[in-house]
Computed example of a mutant assay.
Amino acid sequence: MHRLACLGAALSLSIVAGQAMAEESKWSVRAGIAHVSPTNSASNTDAGPVEVGDGTNLGLNLRYAFAPQWSVDILGALPFEHDIRVAGSEVASTKHLPPTVSALYHFNIPGALDLFVGGGLNYTFFMDEQLDGANLSLEDSIGPAGIVGMTYALGPQWSMGADLRYIAIETDAKVNGTDIGSVDIDPWVFAATLGYHF
Rank of each mutant, 00 (worst) to 15 (best):
E51D: 15
L78A: 10
T151R: 12
M160S: 11
V52W: 09
E129S: 15
F126Q: 08
S102R: 06
E90I: 07
W70K: 06
P49Y: 15
G146Q: 05
G48A: 09
Y105G: 03
L115W: 15
E90P: 08
R63W: 00
P144L: 04
V86N: 12
K95N: 12
N44V: 10
E139N: 15
G161P: 14
T100D: 02
G143M: 02
G149C: 07
L62I: 04
P144G: 01
G55N: 05
G119T: 01
D140Q: 05
A168T: 06
A145L: 03
D73C: 05
P99M: 03
V86L: 12
A145W: 04
V72W: 02
E81M: 13
A145E: 00
L62A: 03
T45W: 13
P156T: 03
F107D: 05
V117Q: 12
P98F: 06
A112P: 15
E81H: 11
A173C: 04
F125A: 07
P144R: 02
W70R: 06
T100K: 01
N61I: 00
D73K: 04
E129K: 10
A103R: 02
L78C: 08
Y152I: 09
R85T: 14
V72P: 05
L121V: 02
G111C: 11
D172R: 03
L121M: 01
V86E: 14
E81Y: 07
A145I: 01
Q69K: 09
G177C: 11
G88F: 09
D128P: 13
S89G: 13
L58P: 06
G149D: 04
H82K: 06
M150P: 15
P144N: 02
G53P: 07
T124R: 01
D140P: 07
A87H: 10
F107R: 08
K95V: 13
E51F: 11
L154E: 13
P156W: 01
R165D: 07
G177L: 08
A42Q: 12
D73G: 05
G149A: 04
K95I: 13
A92S: 14
T151Q: 14
S159P: 12
P49T: 12
L97K: 01
Y64A: 01
D83K: 09
V50W: 14
A112E: 15
L58D: 05
P49D: 13
E51P: 06
G55E: 05
G181M: 04
D128K: 14
L62R: 02
P79S: 08
N44W: 09
P98Q: 03
A145D: 00
D114P: 05
G55P: 07
V148F: 14
G177S: 14
M160K: 09
I169S: 02
Y123K: 00
G120V: 01
Y105N: 04
F125L: 11
S43C: 07
D114T: 08
G120E: 00
F116E: 10
F107C: 02
L121R: 00
V148D: 11
L104N: 05
V148Q: 08
A153K: 15
V117K: 14
V72T: 06
P49A: 11
Y152D: 11
H96N: 07
Y152T: 11
Y152C: 13
